[in-house]
Computed example of a mutant assay.
Amino acid sequence: MWGAAALVLVYLILRLLGPILMPFALASVFAYIGDPLVDRLEERKLGRTPAVALVFVGLTLVTALGVLITLPLLLDQTQLLIQRLYGFVAWVQESGLPALRQYFDLPEQSSVNTAKEALSKHWSAAGGLLMYVWQQVSGSSAAVLTWLANMTLVPVVTFYLLRDWDHMMARIRALLPRRVEPKVVGIARECDEILGAFARGQFMVMLSLALVYMAGLWLVGLDLALVLGLIAGLASIVPYLGFIVGILAAGLAAYFQFDSWWPLLGVAGVFGAGQVLESVYLTPTLVGDKIGLHPVIVIFAVLAGGQLFGFLGILLALPAAAVIKVMVLHAHEAYQSSDFYAAAGDVKESPE
């Protein structure tokens, strides 16, 4: 009873504080990832604060170097992608829609003059539409500014969380009732092992697939190889999503770039090889069976997290699913060790 009420209360609080939780959630993830590095530096007789500063500066330099190297290429590819999208829209208007009208015997589109007359007759509605568009644009600008302000909090919160991480964990452990403290600590260690395996393994899988897709699309000759390969690699956090998004986007880009069907076969070969490499080697080697989440569970977790908590829910869906898996396994073990389960077995096996 009290447990269910506490879960409902936590859910309501998360829903109300959702807009401001993003930088703190990201900072917690970065602090969790960086804590083992800081602990290793402490083992070498380095103080906690200097160790945190060294790890923080190192990660910042690596991130900045990666951004400086890839950002110009990504900007060029993004600009080219926008140009290709404009070309695709023009093709749809000039060739695609007329072909569909002819095939399905649909009426022709109204002329420009007819549209102008309709607009002049419904000027008030058009004014309302313009006001709506302006509100959306201004709201988007405010959202961008809010996002930038939140992102500036991430390094600050990460530094303080990383510095006090062990102290906070010790405080939480001290608050646990002594009777359940060993069991809770054991479960927490199992969750830590699973989350560590997921964070390291899944990141390496995504990075490897992104490199494979970028190299393969570059060999095919696709102009958008970098940005499409990177998008497909990042989307591979959800099973088969990177393959589906990548092959559709790259296939469409190859269709408009080349006059031959052979590049489309090359794109299909690149993503087919990437999918086989992920299933046969990357995921078993880098992630292994420590997480053991079924693909259907992964897809459901991501969709449920997005539905409940937006982008924050998508970000934390798989780690939360891994932790819930550990909880369910321990609950199942406790159930099988309970008197209720033993009594049910006795009743089932008793002769009629």
Rank of each mutant, 00 (worst) to 15 (best):
G3I: 10
A4C: 10
A6I: 01
L7W: 08
L9I: 12
L9G: 01
Y11A: 13
L16C: 06
G18C: 13
A25E: 14
A25G: 04
L26F: 14
A31D: 00
G34L: 00
G34M: 10
D39I: 00
L41E: 00
L41I: 02
E43N: 02
L46T: 03
L46H: 02
P50A: 03
P50V: 06
V52G: 05
V52Q: 00
A53V: 13
F56H: 12
V57P: 04
G58P: 02
G58F: 14
L59P: 08
V62I: 12
I69S: 04
L71E: 07
L74K: 00
Q77Y: 00
Q79E: 02
L80C: 04
L80S: 13
Q83I: 00
L85S: 12
G87Y: 09
G87I: 11
V89R: 10
A90M: 04
W91K: 02
V92A: 11
V92L: 14
S95W: 07
L97Y: 15
P98D: 00
R101G: 06
Q102M: 06
Y103Q: 11
Q109P: 08
A115P: 00
A115E: 09
A118I: 07
S120I: 08
S120L: 07
S120D: 15
S124K: 08
S124H: 09
A126R: 08
L129A: 12
Q135M: 05
A143H: 08
A143Y: 10
V144K: 07
W147L: 15
W147D: 13
W147I: 14
M151N: 12
L153Q: 06
L153H: 05
L153K: 06
V156D: 09
V156E: 13
L161G: 07
M169A: 15
A170V: 14
R173Q: 15
R173T: 15
A174R: 13
L176A: 09
P177D: 10
V180C: 05
V180M: 15
V180P: 03
V185P: 02
V185C: 08
I187S: 11
C191F: 08
E193S: 13
L195K: 07
G196P: 03
M204I: 13
M206F: 01
M206G: 05
L207Y: 10
L211P: 01
L211D: 01
Y213S: 01
W218A: 15
W218K: 15
G229Q: 01
I231C: 13
I247T: 13
L248V: 15
Y255S: 14
Q257E: 10
F258P: 07
W261G: 05
P263R: 00
L264G: 12
L264M: 10
V267W: 03
A268Q: 11
F271I: 07
F271D: 03
F271P: 05
A273V: 12
A273R: 11
E278C: 10
V287F: 04
I291V: 15
G292L: 08
P295V: 09
A301P: 00
V302G: 04
L308W: 11
G310F: 08
L312E: 03
L315Y: 06
L315S: 03
L318W: 01
A322F: 01
V326E: 00
H330K: 05
H330V: 04
H332K: 13
S337Y: 02
F340S: 04
V347Q: 09
K348I: 11
P351A: 07
